[in-house]
Amino acid sequence: MATGPARKGLLVATFSTLLVAGAVAYTVGSSPAWPEVQKAFFDGRYFSTSLPAVAEAFTINVRLFIIAELLILPIGLLIALARSITAPALTPLRIFATAYVDFFRGVPSILIIYVLGFGVPALQLDGVPKEPFFWALVTLVLIYSAYVSEVYRAGIESIHPSQERAARALGLTRVQALRHVVIPQAMRRVIPPLLNDFIGLQKDTALVSILGVVETFKQAQILKAASFNFTPLMTTALIFLIITIPMTRLVDHLAAKDRSAQLGGTR
């Protein structure tokens, strides 16, 4: 049973939410062209006819982001480690890793998709695949490995240097100290921001439609072009939300748990 003040807070929250939602609904609904807009974007008939095709095409997106995520997890970590190398002999590796991250984080994804997806197959090199799905995958892996490596790096750097020093003092090598002491602790901290990046990746699978991969967004565009109605695009949006909203909530939950663990712990 909610106590007095908590119950009052709940009432206020419910009331203010309803008030705002009602105001928005009224403003949109009373606009002069709402009936036309509703028919163009939110037509129930087009929704139900587009759903099977759009949902089926979404399996391409799912395949794309699952394979990409499995590749990004180790590649991002390797790049992060390459950037934190201090050995002078391996400086070129560090410079390359830094340049890689700067480039792929700094150029708009859509340009990279164009250049790699159309440019590389156009070279007609022997043995280089031409399938749009392959290049879509390569592009997403390259871009998101750069983002994820930064997440890993932040996590590794958030572990206090005294931890690595304690491990080195026990006679562990630098690599052993990273593997057994630093990285396991960093992993726990990076899970929420890592999932955040994966939400971004899942949405960006729609970008590869420009290469001609018939994934859910491309499928919706095809249906839109055939019917002159935008509803199939809304169907796609809904499918994306079904995937991303639970993941967003999971991120919030993990982040909150991490915060309370850090406040409660004596480390």
């Binding site: 005294s162 931890q163 020093r165 304690a166 491990a167 003092a169 026990l170 006679g171 562990l172 090598t173 052993q176 057994h180 002491v181 396991p184 602790q185 726990r188 712990g265 480390r267």
Partner: peptide, 27 residues
């Protein structure tokens, strides 16, 4: 062997894992 003022135990490992880490990994 060195022991620091701030303990610097590994928080992600149990007590026995803290002590067994160096014998297992380094030795």
């Amino acid at each position: 062997g060195i022991v620091f003022q701030g303990f610097n135990l590994f928080p992600h490992l149990t007590v026995v894992e803290n002590v067994a880490l160096a014998p297992r990994v380094a030795l």
